[in-house]
């Protein structure tokens, strides 16, 4: 059952990255590909009715994590205190940037909201990447299962790391590039004319960078966490996942060259999904590893809530999520097609 809850949390986080990822990507590109007020309005409209629902996956994912693994939630959220608070501020800025823009006219007001939207999207992508990098690298957990990380120390991985070090900076760059491309594919699907062309161009230009940074991050991960392959060696079947990542990248390239926007977007979804699934498969059964002593690792076994609530939880949680999926299908169907000028 712990195995199931581990994967349910992983699915929630993956869904969040894939769904809110294109909102963030659209935000990152906002100032660069949309030049006029009308174009900027269109970019916002491409995510208008869905971004709020996409962000709910973060809340529901965080809540599921809290429900299933209270120790991880308590330790991780207090240890990553500073970056999480910054993420909260950025989420606030993004929300008002998207939603309040249409309520006020005038170049200065709109410029203010566009700036909030773009800047918060860029920084959120970097922080999310760095956060994932921190989980993979590990943190200095103490005897009680807690830790506290400053924003940076000496930029080295090791016993006394900061939130930002050379490794997590690479992870941040990977997330920034991957989500920018993801957003570009999405905007291309939802728009026509100049915006569509500019979005396609961004995606083509960044593709080599994405391949490069994917390889660099793979090398970096294996050099700081040689044990990352333990599960893969035990179950060689898992090597399907990195192969799927490579295939997604190739599919992305081919669809882009043939200007198949939907195909390229789906390939980009697949890339994000397999990257995250690959990371989750490497980490299990650990949830947060200790850089000081492996005996202090937080695992699914020592972090889980009581078995009554977890087994009862499967019933209502799965029914609730099926309902939620129903709303999503309904809303995305209502919103299908390209956004008009």
């Amino acid at each position: 059952m712990l195995f199931i809850w581990f994967w349910l949390v992983a699915v929630m986080i993956t869904a969040y990255v894939v769904l809110d990822g294109f909102d963030l990507g659209a935000g990152i590109l906002h100032l660069f590909i949309a030049k006029t007020d009308q174009e900027r309005r269109i970019v916002i409209r491409t995510i208008g009715p869905v971004w709020d629902g996409n962000e709910v996956w973060l809340l529901a994912g965080g809540g599921t994590l809290y429900f299933a693994f209270p120790l991880l939630y308590a330790s991780g959220f207090s240890g990553f205190y500073l970056p999480l608070m910054i993420v909260l501020w950025l989420l606030i800025l993004r929300g008002i940037g998207i939603e309040l823009r249409m309520h006020l006219e005038g170049t200065v007001w709109r410029g203010f909201f566009d700036g909030c939207f773009a800047l918060s999207s860029i920084l959120l992508a970097i922080f999310y990447g760095a956060a994932l990098g921190n989980v993979v690298r590990g943190v200095p957990l103490n005897q009680e299962g807690y830790f506290f990380l400053p924003l940076w120390t000496n930029w080295r991985t090791g016993a006394d790391p900061g939130i930002l070090d050379w490794y997590t900076v690479i992870a941040g760059a990977l997330a920034l590039i991957a989500l920018t491309i993801h957003g570009a594919h999405y905007v291309a699907v939802k728009t026509s004319g100049d915006l569509n062309l500019r979005a396609r161009r961004v995606a083509s230009l960044l593709w080599p960078a994405l391949v490069l940074v994917t390889l660099v991050s793979l090398w970096a991960t294996l050099s700081i966490r040689p044990d990352a392959l333990t599960n893969y060696r035990k179950f060689p079947m898992l090597y399907v996942i990195p192969v799927a990542v490579a295939l997604s990248l190739i599919a992305m390239y081919l669809h882009r060259r043939r200007n198949q926007d939907k195909g390229a977007f789906l390939a980009s979804c697949a890339y994000l999904i397999f990257m995250l699934v690959g990371a989750a498969a490497a980490v299990y059964p650990n949830l947060l590893v200790s850089t000081t002593d492996p005996a202090l690792n937080i695992t699914v076994y020592n972090a889980a809530a009581g078995s009554y609530s977890l087994s009862y939880g499967l019933i209502w949680w799965i029914s609730g999520m099926l309902l939620a999926l129903g709303y999503f299908v309904f809303i995305y169907r209502m919103f299908r097609g390209k956004v008009a000028a």
């Binding site: 529901a60 809540g63 809290y66 299933a68 939630y73 330790s75 299962g145 209502w316 609730g320 999520m321």
Partner: peptide, 18 residues
């Protein structure tokens, strides 16, 4: 959060899901 998560984690995640 750690000590009571086994109880209040439930209504909090239910709020998100439902």
């Amino acid at each position: 959060a750690r000590v009571t998560g086994g109880v209040i984690g439930q209504p909090l995640v239910m709020e998100g899901v439902f």
